[in-house]
Amino acid sequence: MKRWLKEDLWRHAIALVVCFFVLFPIYLVILSALSPTGSLQVTSFIPKTISFHNFSQLFTSPKIPYLVWMKNSLVIAGVVAILSVVIGAASAFAFSRLRFKGKKQGLQLLLLVQMFPAILSLSAVYVIMSRVYSFAPRIGLGTQPGLLLVYMGGAMGVNIWLLKGFVDSIPMELDEAAKVDGASAVQTYWLIFVPLAAPVLAVVSLLSFIGTFNEFILARLFLVDMHARTIAVGLQGFISGQYASNWGPFAAGSIIASIPLIAIFLSLQRYIISGLTAGSVKG
C-alpha cells in the first residue's frame, strides 16, 4: 500500500491524464450519438435527454442499409487483408532470404514507390479501371472486385516492407537446417517459414484490415450503388451533403463500426505489441 502511494502515484497520475485525453473525444461521440439533435457541439457535458433514435434509424430506415455496408466493409477489408499478406509475405521472404542480383535496388525502389504522393493516382486509377470496365465490367470501375484489386496494389508495398522486417527477425538457423536436408526455397517457404511467421502475418493482416476499413476517397468513387457501399463511404455520406450534415446517425454509425475493430484489437493486444516490434528488434 505504501509503495503504491510513494512510487506509483505519479505513474497513475500521468496514465490517468492520458486516459482522459484519449477518452474525452470518445465520450463526446457517444454523447452526440445519444442526443436527439445529434450535433457535435456541446452545451453541457451531462446529457439532458437520451434518445436512441440515431441508432434505431441505422437499422430501420430504408435509406440506410447499415448492415449491408458493414458486411461489405468486413468482406472487402477481410479479403484484402488476407490476400495482400499472402502475396506480400512471399516477396518479403525472397527479399529476406534469397540471394539475387539487384536486391538492394529492388528494396529501395519499393520504399521510394511508397513515398510518391499518391493523391493524383486517383485520376490514373480511375482511368485504368474505367478502361477495364469496358471489357470486363465485373472487375472494373464501380464494382467491389475492382476496388479490391486496387486496394491490393496499394497494400502491397507497405506489407512487403513491414513483413520483410519481421522475416529478418526469424532466426536463419532454421532454414539453414532445412537447406541441409535438401529442401528447395519454395519448400522452405511453405514448410518452415509460413508456420513460424503465422502470428506476424496475422498482425500485418490486421493492420491492412484497418487501413482498408477506413479508406473512403477511392471507395466513394468506386462504390456508387447504395448496396455496394462500404461503411466508410456510407458514414462520409452522412456529413458531406451539398449543404447539410447529419451528425447524429454519423456518430451512432461510427460507434457501431468501431466495435469490431476494437474487439479484434483488444483480443490481439499481446500479439500486436510483439508483432509490431519484432520487425525492428533483432534476435
Partner: peptide, 12 residues
C-alpha cells in the same frame, strides 16, 4: 444512379 454524397458525385 444516386451517389453517396454531393462531394462524391462531384469527384466522380
Amino acid at each position: 444512379v444516386p451517389f453517396s454524397s454531393f462531394d462524391a458525385l462531384k469527384a466522380a
